[in-house]
Design a protein around this nucleic acid. Sequence first.
DNA 1: CAGAACATGTAAACGGTTACATGATTCC
DNA 2: GGAATCATGTAACCGTTTACATGTTCTG
Lengths: 189, 189
Amino acid sequence: MSLRFALLGLLNERPASGYDLTRRFAQGIGSYAWDAKHSQIYPELKKLTEAGLIEIAEEGARGRKTYAITADGRAQLRQWLLTPAGNAGVRNEYVLRLFLLSALRRDEARTILEHTIEYSTEQLQAITQDFQDSVADGGPTRGHGALAAQYGIRVFQATIDWAHWAIEQIDADPGFGHGADGCATAPTR
Amino acid sequence: MSLRFALLGLLNERPASGYDLTRRFAQGIGSYAWDAKHSQIYPELKKLTEAGLIEIAEEGARGRKTYAITADGRAQLRQWLLTPAGNAGVRNEYVLRLFLLSALRRDEARTILEHTIEYSTEQLQAITQDFQDSVADGGPTRGHGALAAQYGIRVFQATIDWAHWAIEQIDADPGFGHGADGCATAPTR
DNA sequence: CAGAACATGTAAACGGTTACATGATTCC
DNA sequence: GGAATCATGTAACCGTTTACATGTTCTG
């Protein structure tokens, strides 16, 4: 059900085609909120159109269809947002990997954490850059743009800080890596 | 594929039954890394056993089966962790909702952000409490326990800080809520 | 004119959720 | 003895991914 509202939310900001929406999922929103592929987006846009929540605002070159949210769609989006939702099914493979670090040897875990710092730093810079580009283009400095960008910045910064701290921890911990292959402290059974 | 490694990872820490694993998903790990229900966990444990990656270490009362990871399973887990993974399909409905706040009126968005602060504060306290309980019980203060708990603490704290900042932003922004129902700045077409 | 990017769609296979279903043990 | 908790499983449905499939427009 969330995909439907993710699409309504993006279309509420401004009209877009399936192609546009696919790229937006592949970029920012897909990295920390919700991901979707074009093969899921196109059929969903069709359903939303049939339900009257969005409409084709314009048909352009190459079969391009620009969709816009309708009053009905906006009402449903608002209703969904105003309905409280307990923390539903989170899925983040990257974070899962961070959780399982104790299965690695100290040096391996350190390498992964260093990659995490590198990766998160890149993401941080990408968000900052995107945001500044959007400001320069006269794009939305308010609403979605600024709030979401700032959220991403803070979460990635927290991840970087955590990874630095985690490296210190594993370096200081003599028992780290007990679950690693071929280590004497890990009996097979 | 990730569920498989999530299970191997948890079993690498210590042997557990399907029931134990279900509870651990419902608690910490399910809130910020990976979620799964018992109906998915039990069949997966069966498959992992058939593949020789885990084994039944003990059969107890009420049909309880305690599974333990095998050397093979540990090797596969380690291999997976050491294989770099670009940020794969993230899904977090709670964060998605935060992204779409600009569809609401200022006062509504503020309410949601206040709920976010409240909720994240509770989560923060729950993690801190769980972690302290686990230390008091002589549980693992190393590996998974400490690193994961600290990660959760930092991410929830970042969310709280962001929400405070976001409330200030929307209060200061005269254009906020342009996408809300019945607002003059949002023409239907 | 070739290759990249734009643009949309479908189908099979897989993963995940909800609901159904059952029974044992413990606690009060 | 009844309720809560422990404990495991299956099936139908729905959401998601991967792979297949096609054609257009722009850029160099």
